[in-house]
């Protein structure tokens, strides 16, 4: 069953200009943060979005749980079109969709005891009274490994380590037993030796609640560990999607290949580098045709003229490239 389906989703942010700049150019400019992307997340599966900084991962995550309003496209969550749903219509769905942020410090109320922070959603949604909510929060503390729960309940966020704070953020997101979560770089600010336990905790809840997850990361090693499917984004577009193993063993888009050949690894096989020229382009005026073309070592004239569509190469492997690297592993 499809939990979330997104089609042709777009979000442009107006560029903030200084007074002088506004006098000089009358034309309004936009950052094309998300520029027509489509994907499906199946029930109980982890779908990862990877790509470099600024490619539109967070914006996508915020759009699908409607913390951000799309410009165009369609978002269907559990068969309900929520693309332009009003806050009132969204409220009952908010219980089922949660988001976990990168910075567990910023996402917790610094003056609230962590136990109350975890219990709060139950009260806000009118699911439990104060006493029941506290009971549930204690159970949840136990569940995320913050024990003894009674002791942790009373602590404030600053009294916890980064890893422990992320556990609190996860507990708060999970207390409503959601069906779907967006996890936006949930371990990138956490120490290496503690990352694993946080990822394992997320996987535990995935199994427990049959969760579907949109997992956002710039770390391909983490994506490989946690996801069923990986989608690679470049400048607001999805350039390649496939099952995790397929994408890593058989990347077809030059950008995916460049990414994979740049990731440090303890156990790399032979290193076959794809070197991209220059640097990532400006999302305000992205290149014509394929957005990678000015940097791509395989580009031909069609690449600057025609935008490649995301098409299937079998095995549920989709690539948007005029000259995909077929069978070159």
């Amino acid at each position: 069953m499809v939990e979330l389906e997104v089609s042709s989703l777009k979000k442009y942010f107006p560029v903030q200009k200084s007074f002088i700049e506004r006098l000089l150019t009358r034309k309004k400019q936009f950052i094309r943060a998300v520029d027509g992307i489509s994907f499906k997340i199946f029930n109980g599966q982890v779908f990862s979005l990877v790509g470099e900084s600024g490619c539109g991962k967070t914006t996508t995550g915020r759009l699908v749980v409607r913390l951000e309003k799309p410009d165009e496209g369609k978002i269907v969550f559990e068969d309900k079109d929520i693309t332009f749903a009003k806050e009132k219509e969204l409220r009952p769905l908010r219980r089922k969709m949660q988001i976990i942020f990168q910075d567990p410090y910023a996402s917790l109320n610094p003056r609230m005891r962590i136990g109350d922070t975890i219990a709060e959603p139950l009260i806000v949604h009118g699911i439990a009274d104060k006493k029941e909510a506290k009971e549930e929060a204690l159970k949840m503390l136990e569940n995320v490994g913050l024990t003894p729960a009674h002791m942790f309940y009373k602590l404030l966020p600053h009294q916890l380590s980064g890893g422990q704070r992320q556990r609190v953020a996860i507990a708060r997101a999970m207390i409503l037993k959601p069906k779907f979560i967006v996890a936006d770089e949930p371990v990138s600010m956490i120490d290496v030796s503690l990352r694993t336990s946080i990822l394992k905790l997320i996987m535990k809840f995935k199994t427990l609640y049959n969760l579907s997850i949109l997992f956002i990361t710039h770390d391909l090693a983490v994506a490989r560990l946690i996801s069923d499917t990986i989608a690679v984004m470049y400048l607001g577009k999805i350039v390649e999607v496939a099952s995790t193993e397929e994408l890593i063993d058989n990347p077809m888009h030059p950008y995916t290949k460049a990414l994979l050949s740049s990731v440090p690894s303890l156990f790399r096989r032979k290193r076959e580098k794809v070197i991209l020229k220059g640097e990532i382009a400006n999302p305000i005026n992205p290149p014509s045709g394929c957005r990678l073309h000015p940097r791509c070592p395989f580009a031909k004239s069609i690449c600057s003229q025609e935008e490649p569509k995301l098409i299937s190469y079998g095995n549920n492997h989709y690539v948007a490239c005029h000259f995909p690297l077929l069978g070159k592993g």
Binding site: V192, S193, L194, R195, T196, S197, L199, K200, L220, A221, V222, A223, R224, L225, E245, I248, L260, V263, S265, L266, F267, R268, R269
Partner: peptide, 13 residues
């Protein structure tokens, strides 16, 4: 404890 992109392995914390 660290995941690796090229190897599917069991990670332990």
């Amino acid at each position: 404890s660290i995941p690796d992109v090229f190897v599917r392995k069991e990670i332990k914390e």
